[in-house]
Amino acid sequence: MRNVFPILTVVAAIVLLWYAGAVWMNSAWTLDRADGPLSFGEVVRDTMSQDRPRLPAPHQIGAELYDTVIDKAVTSKRSLVFHGWVTLRSTLTGFALGTIMGILMAVAVVYSRTASMTLMPWAIISQTIPIVAIAPMIIVLLASIGVEGRAVPKAIISAYLCYFPVLVGMVKGLRSPDAMQLDLMRTYNASASQAFWKLRLPSSVPYLFTSLKVGIAAALVGTIVGELPTGAIRGLGARILIGDQFGNPIMIWSALIAAAVLAGVLVSLVAVMQGVAMKRMGFAR
C-alpha cells in the first residue's frame, strides 16, 4: 500500500502533462478556424473537444474507451472487447508456440555443440531483421501454401518474437548448475536424462519465468504487428490501422491504451504465476 502514493503521483503528473500537450498541439487547429481573437479559455475549451485532435485529451480517450468497451455488445465489430479478444487469443497461441520452441531450442543448444554453433547465430540474426519486414512475407507465404485466415500467420509472427527471450533465458538457466552440482550427479552415476530432469530443468525455472515475462509482452507486440499489414479487420492492430486510415486519432489512442492494459495484465499474470511457482518450489524466502 505504501507504493500507491508515488504511483498515483506519477500518474497524475502524466495526465497533467498530457492535458498541457493536448492544449499546445491542438491549439494550431483551433486558431486556424477562428474568425476573431480568442480568449485563452476559449482556446483551451476547443482543444479539449476536437473531433480529430492531433493529441486527444485523456477524457476523450476515456469516453471512447467507455463507449467501445462497456457500451458496445461484445460481439460488435466496434467493441474493443471483441478486438482485444481476437488479439489476446492470437497472443496466447503465439506465446505457447514461442515458449515451446524457445525451450526446445535451448535444450538442443545446451546439449549439442553443433546446435549451439548453428542455432544461436541464426536466432540472433532472426531478431535483427525488423519484424515489420518479415510479417507481410509470412502472411503471403502462408496464404500461398493455402493457410486461410489470419489466425495462423499472426500466431507465427507472435511466436517469432516470443521465442527469443525464452531461448536466451533457458540456455542460461539450463547452464546455471555449477560444476559441483554436476559432479554430484556424476558421483551418483546419474544418466544424462536424470541430470536434466532433476538438476538442469529445476535450476532453470527462475530464469524461465523471467524470460516468460519478456516473452509474453513480445508475443503481444508480434500479434499487433501481424494485424497491421493491410487486409486485417480484426484485432487491436487492425483498430490502430483503421484509425490511421480514417484519420481518427481517438480510435488509435484508445486501441493503444487497450493494448497497453492487455500487456500489463498479461505480464502481471505471468508474474503471479512466477510467484506461486517459486513459492511452491521453495525458492521464496
Binding site: 559441483m180 525455472v205 518450489m281 521453495g282 525458492f283
Partner: peptide
Amino acid sequence: RAYGYVFQAAGLYPW
C-alpha cells in the same frame, strides 16, 4: 556407486 562425496559447500538443491 561406491562413493558418497561431501563437498566443501553443502550444495543442497534450493527447490
